[in-house]
């Protein structure tokens, strides 16, 4: 694998994580508990999809085959998507969405802080621009963890169930392959193992403050680094790509 191939693949991973989570959050439109929250969730969707545009555009540039960010989003089959399994999980109830966001934003916060120092100037620039948004996403998720965990008996139960249900998707966030090896050597990205301890510490603190319990189950899902996803991704892709697939010669 060349450095260029590794960088392309890495950008797909970053871009797909943003795009697919943005897609999921956008599904909350007109479904949230109050309008303010409807706007908060879809605003985060806007941030994430906006970020995916920047990253996929760069991916296309690195790939050098004349593709656009839209080609990469709308014409790639499901086996060539590299987002983490966590972000494609269905929204569930509000607690599931918050826990998913909390796990992911905590991870993104640590990752993008490092990417700001990347030797790849484009990625460093995107990271610098996006870090403020990630901080807001993390604060939003953390505030809700506290409210749900320490709110009513029902919200406590739902939050704990969501933590337990999402837990098996957390190890994969830190998985690495040849792509990471190459890019770490180049100073483009970081060793994800180095983020893990910090991630665990941060989420443990919030979970305890929320009067919830850190799950102890050790079974963990894996597959996305090879483009192997949960069954949910296919539906997301089908919905997202339908117009471009149905009218291949049209411009929108």
């Amino acid at each position: 694998m060349t450095k260029q191939e590794a960088l392309f693949s890495y950008c797909l991973r970053l871009g797909d994580n943003s795009l697919i989570l943005g897609h999921r959050l956008s599904e909350w439109s007109s479904k949230a508990p109050i309008i303010e929250e409807d706007l908060a969730l879809t605003n985060m969707a806007l941030d994430l999809i906006g970020r995916s545009v920047a990253i996929l555009k760069y991916a296309a540039e690195v790939e050098g085959k004349g593709h656009t960010e839209d080609d990469l989003a709308y014409r790639r089959p499901e086996r060539k998507f590299y987002n983490n399994l966590l972000v494609e999980q269905p929204n569930g109830d509000f607690a599931v969405t918050i826990v998913r966001q909390f796990f992911n934003s905590t991870f993104e916060y640590l990752l993008y802080e490092e990417l700001m120092k990347s030797k790849d100037e484009t990625l460093a620039g995107i990271a610098a621009k996006t870090i403020k948004e990630i901080k807001y996403h993390l604060r939003h998720a953390t505030d809700w963890m506290l409210r749900l965990g320490d709110g009513t008996p029902e919200s406590h139960l739902r939050a704990q169930k969501a933590l337990n249900d999402m837990w098996m998707f957390t190890d994969e966030l830190f998985e690495m392959n040849e792509v990471d090896e190459i890019l770490i050597k180049e100073g483009i990205t970081v060793d994800l193992n180095m983020l893990k301890a910090n991630w665990s510490k941060k989420i443990n603190e919030v979970i305890l403050e929320s009067t919830l319990t850190v799950p102890t189950s050790t079974f963990m899902q894996t597959g996305s680094r090879q483009g192997i996803h949960s069954e949910y991704l296919g539906y997301i892709i089908a919905e997202m790509q339908y117009l471009q697939r149905a009218y291949p010669n049209a411009k929108w």
């Binding site: 897609h23 956008s26 599904e27 439109s29 007109s30 309008i35 409807d38 706007l39 879809t42 605003n43 969707a45 806007l46 999809i49 906006g50 995916s52 545009v53 996929l56 960010e69 839209d70 989003a73 709308y74 997301i236 919905e239 997202m240 339908y242 117009l243 471009q244 049209a250 929108w252």
Partner: peptide, 29 residues
Amino acid sequence: MQPEGNWITRAPSLRAKLILLAKIQDEGG
């Protein structure tokens, strides 16, 4: 927000998706 919201996940380009998402948020605002 509902009728247009139907189309966020199916918008035919990333740019169209962003514009639609922003518009629907404006309406909520």
